Simulated assay, not measured.
Amino acid sequence: MWKTITLFILFVTINGQCSCSKFTDQSSCFAYGYCLFVNGVCSEQKCEAIPYQEKCKSPLCLWKDDKCSTFKAYEETCQALLPQQCTQYQGCYYDYTNLKCSINKDCSSLKIDQCNGKLQNGNSCVADPFNNRCQEMTDCKSLTTEFMCLSQFPQCKYVDSTCQPQVCTDIKDNISCTFIDECQWNHDKCQYKNCQSIAFGYLCNGNTCGFDKNKCFACFEQYSYQLFVGLISLLFIL
């Protein structure tokens, strides 16, 4: 007797950000992240090896005394930052009552007027003034109130009393679509980026795509298969 079994297979793609080594053009290398072109190779540089002020940037590096150095969040290093720099560096928050930049170790201990910036682990502090709360945001699902969730739009959306990550295809306007790195506005719709279809470097560079030699390419490393849900029918004899 012939039997047919239908199996649902889910292939998963594991993604990672663009590495400097993917860039072969000197100008494209310089435009991306902490990359520098040294001895014909594009590679990520330590802050101390960066000789240019425009490449010495938050959240890893700080330009001070005409040199670039690795930024480490201590009370004295946070206090030395200008107000407009304060929340750009991980581990610092700006105290609007006392008008100073201070070290940030725990979002939940901050008052509402201090609930800004990021922890040293890169997670943001998000305020809910209605409930007088400051909470660490690990992802959209970690936000426990509607106000905090909506304050992170368009990255997050509030559905069925829970905070959820935004889906590109659910976004209906161009501006909100462009705020999310993995989304692009195309043919009056917000879609997931197809890096190869992007013609301009300023639209390409980010965590999702990189621009090199006048071409846009996907940063993601494919360790497995692309996301695909398929059906397989197997025939066998009992």
Rank of each mutant, 00 (worst) to 15 (best):
L81P: 14
L81H: 03
L82H: 10
L82S: 12
Q85M: 08
Q85F: 04
T87W: 02
T87N: 11
Q88C: 02
Q88E: 13
Y89V: 02
Q90C: 05
G91N: 06
G91C: 12
C92M: 07
Y93S: 00
Y93C: 00
Y94R: 13
Y96T: 14
T97Q: 11
T97P: 01
L99V: 10
S102F: 00
I103F: 07
L110I: 08
L110M: 13
K111N: 14
K111Q: 15
C115L: 05
G117K: 03
L119W: 09
S124I: 06
S124Y: 13
C125I: 12
C125V: 14
V126M: 08
V126Y: 12
V126S: 06
A127S: 11
P129F: 08
P129R: 12
P129Q: 14
F130Y: 12
N132R: 05
C134G: 07
Q135G: 02
E136H: 09
E136D: 14
M137E: 08
M137D: 01
K141N: 14
S142E: 10
S142F: 07
S142N: 12
S142A: 14
L143E: 03
L143I: 14
T144F: 00
C149G: 07
Q152D: 02
Q152W: 05
F153D: 10
F153G: 00
P154L: 15
P154N: 13
P154Q: 15
P154M: 14
C156E: 01
C156P: 00
K157H: 04
V159E: 15
D160M: 07
S161Y: 11
T162A: 13
C163Y: 04
C163W: 03
C163S: 05
Q164G: 01
Q164C: 03
Q164H: 04
P165H: 07
P165C: 07
V167P: 00
V167A: 06
C168L: 03
C168G: 05
